[in-house]
Amino acid sequence: MIVGKQKPIEETWAMVKDFSRVLVFGCNTCVAVCHEGGNKEAQILASLMRMKATQEGLSLEIRDSGIERQCEHEFFESAEKDIEWADAVLSLACGVGVQFMVKRYPEILVYPGLDTCFLGDVEKNGLFTESCQACGKCVLAETAGICPVSRCAKRVLNGPCGGSNKGACEINKDLPCAWQLIVDRLEALGRLADYERLAPIKDWSTERAGGPRKLIHEEFMK
């Protein structure tokens, strides 16, 4: 899932306060799971903003709404009226959702309410951790199922670096060293000898470095 974090209200308030009809718009999938951008969070943020408007004596109208996913056309129908009503939308989706709305509603101003942070999992209730950077050429088969691209601070493919310290990464003692995890798992699986295989130089052209990426399925495009 995509994990995001709400921007400080001072920042989002500055984006929208000079409009007259503002819609705070939730996205009820990934960013709802991390309690930052779902329809419930949209409701709360909208009421906080209404209080701010009263405090500052501004007459703007603020509504909230939301849909299941802001990154696909099929979910927008139920919210079409709210969106058309607004002269600015504060989207609580990830950056993908915000931009999807920009494409879909070119005439409406859409602002980002979240900072999109990473692709991660729900390690346990309330804890979300990064575990993939969509590098476009997965190496998990060679690294005991633990991703060095996203979980090592230097994305070294032949780790660990010299900074690995008692299981922690050199940058933070609360962050596990990905390569310690890889070595431990290889050992647990009885495959420590695999550690000595050199990982080849990686083709990063399938990653961000190669420019924006696309996946095309002609058969579904009609």
Partner: peptide
């Protein structure tokens, strides 16, 4: 450095 078990394999 840790992990100790791979210090020599890493040299190899």
């Amino acid at each position: 450095a840790q992990p100790h078990k791979i210090r020599v394999p890493r040299l190899a």
